[in-house]
Design a protein around this nucleic acid. Structure first.
Lengths: 239, 239
DNA sequence: CGGCCGCTTGAATCAAGTCAACATTTGTGG
DNA sequence: CCACAAATGTTGACTTGATTCAAGCGGCCG
């Protein structure tokens, strides 16, 4: 009775209503857990997968690769996030899933997820809705990367992470762990690591944030929200 | 017996198997059609919607707005594309849906889509899969906007549109209508209209493309694919 | 026919990238 | 617990891709 899907069901319940029976159907799924070191690829692009990766501890990312070796991160996953629910309807990975820190991951079999979704239409809707939230975040990232300069990009990312961390009850919106290197942040923000450094320096100088090595403190949330033009509604978190 | 959902069902069948009965259930949905002029917002951000917009003719876009008036386009929709299937599980629009050209649109009631999805689990999977494809394109756009300079961005967009146009049987991969202004392309590519112009000029000078006003001809697809580092697998079109 | 919208081009400016050096932290084996 | 190596963070000087501003062109529509 370990219920490895517990954190995921709680994540779903933030945005979907599920009956006790529907929750239990998900919770009864067995999923082996593994631990991996930072930088390890949990899934490689092109790989045929028959399970989805649920983050239990640590931080993971979705990364698109380029022929000439570069990478770009297109999603961040916190504990409770299912990295690649996408692979249930589309079981060939189109991207890499990478451990950004040391992680503990549950491998949840597609067969079981799909069986529960087919049996309980509301579960199917909840999973679909979860995919929509992922798409909503991606759409926002497209607009921010496409139209905003570096300080706004970082500010937006910090606002988003604050909200998501708080929504997942992993910390406060104004103070949370950010265990990423500037190199990793650069791959998210679409700028160089050197520039990440300079932008952090600016936000610090303007007394918007403090960044102790692996933790961020937002000193003036209002101004940071305004700088980022941040409106959290796209995260679909309950009020 | 008009079957407004016909083009959408054909789009679904590119990536999902549906029984005759399942197809008929979708095809029997009635949907009023409307026509709108270019630049009209079919859906405004924050709007509560109880229908999804299916493009029948013309081209539409998803656009994220900024407080200071700017916009960024985060998706393009061709005839047969359902613009905001997202709104079935999440009925508050988080973005605008805009007509890029004059369009004919079917308003498909959520209630009916959801009823069919609840009755037929394979339809639910097909709709979910369609949302995954949208997310897959978004993820690709994030990586291209985040990491690639302007010529590569344009090249990638042209390759993607070629594939999608061909997949939808609306034209050929190397020659298709592109009825967008440079201003509209600028909002997609995350560069200024002036720069769009210069980049087109460069691709023309390198004999990669011809762009008659509202049509593109790809002269050297191989080189364009290589320039864009384009791999069509993310579109999940059948081989 | 005239006005407007979209396209085109040039010159000046600016944000971010590149390259390079150095400082600091982390991690590891002796 | 120290010593060293490797990884990460910091800063400066220079270059470059893209923006901005401005002007002129061309075709389409009322």
């Amino acid at each position: 009775m370990t219920q490895p899907l517990k954190p995921f069901v709680e994540r779903l319940l933030l945005r979907s209503e599920l009956s006790r029976e529907e929750q239990d159907a998900l919770l009864s799924i067995e999923a082996p857990t593994v631990t991996e070191r930072a930088r390890w690829d949990l899934v490689r692009p092109g790989q045929k997968v028959n399970y989805s990766c649920l983050v239990l501890e640590g931080m993971a990312a979705r990364a698109e690769g380029f022929a000439h070796g570069g990478r770009h991160t297109t999603a961040l996953f916190l504990p409770g996030d299912m990295c690649d629910l996408h692979s249930v309807p589309v079981p060939i990975a189109g991207w890499a899933i990478t451990a950004l820190t040391d992680v503990r991951i549950a491998h949840v079999p597609h067969r079981e997820i799909e069986a529960v979704a087919r049996r309980y239409p509301s579960v199917a809707m909840a999973l679909w809705r979860d995919t929509v939230v992922d798409g909503s975040i991606l759409s926002k990232w497209v607009s921010v990367l496409g139209s905003q300069p570096a300080p706004q990009r970082l500010a937006h990312l910090l606002c988003e992470l604050g909200c998501r961390v708080e929504g997942a009850k992993l910390g406060s919106r104004t103070r949370f762990a950010l265990p990423l290197t500037q190199e990793q942040l650069a791959e998210i923000l679409g700028i160089t690591a050197v520039h990440v450094n300079r932008v952090f320096k600016r936000l610090r100088a303007e007394r918007l944030i403090n960044d102790d090595p692996r933790e961020v403190e937002i000193l003036d949330l209002d101004r940071l929200l305004r700088l980022a033009d941040f409106d959290e509604s796209y995260l679909l978190l309950p009020r």
